[in-house]
Amino acid sequence: MYAQMIKSTGQNVKSPEEMDPQERAFQERVDAGEKIEPKDWMPEGYRRTLIRQIGQHAHSEIVGQLPEGNWITRAPTLERKAILLAKVQDEAGHGLYLYCAAETLGVSRDHLTRDLLSGKMKYSSIFNYPTLTWADMGAVGWLVDGAAIMNQVPLQRTSYGPYARAMVRICKEESFHQRQGFDIMMKMANGTEAQRKMAQDALNRFWYPSLMMFGPSDENSVHSAQNMAWKIKMNTNDELRQKFVDQTAPQAAFLGLTIPDEHLKWNEARGHYDFSEPDWDEFFDVLKGNGPCSADRMEARNRAWDEGAWVREGLLAHAEKKKARKVAAE
């Protein structure tokens, strides 16, 4: 997902008897569906895991601007250009909201940014794939945003108040993102032969990377169990992936496009689609920084940050001078 492979404390989930009273009271509040707020007591593991998860989610939004930003200057009509620009701008906004949520846990945005730029913190694997044709703008909206929404909707109920509130705002704004993607896909799938070919090619390239967004199966993961007990992870990776495939397969059929999986088949007994797993070796390679565009993405973010330093410093220096002048005048 936008936050993949989030490590937790690495220990098994404690039983109530093993917890100290403070921890037990905390867990009871979480179990009762109460929100945890910034100044409330929280286990150190909860705080650290949240910083990792929200930070990674925020980084994904910011790096996620790049593959779609790649097409803003080439959008084929004025309306498409405006829609795409508004969408990529939303992603910057979503990154901003999420960094602010992380900041309530006592870490600064600049600190998180430096951890992203040094490679210490990760972002979603999906944004390391290239966007090669205009149909990719459709596929990204339809598949990538579709997968993200699967994860983000339940996160509106996450236990940490500022995170949950950021997700509410994000989900509200994001509702047009997937639809605009599908709208592009419809136009392409019903367009000229070249457009249909582009649409199918985009689906071929983005299908498995989209399935990877949910992360490998975590049924037996201790991290996952702890994060679910804390309600900072709401569903298992497999649950969400299945839900995504079940939703997307009929949409592909509607578009007249073929999902690149010969094993994809409706399973009447399970009430779900059967499908092939993505290549997890590729996933781990991408996470290690060997994605097709990993180097490009990090270079672009680093350049933007370095070349922007004089602007951030200049405006801050001006603000300080202004304050000093005001004090002097009083």
Binding site: V88, L96, A304, V311
Partner: peptide, 18 residues
Amino acid sequence: SEWCGVAPVLEEDIALAN
């Protein structure tokens, strides 16, 4: 619009897009 995604700070990125 060429600035989208690479402005010096997030707030400016959003403002330029507007």
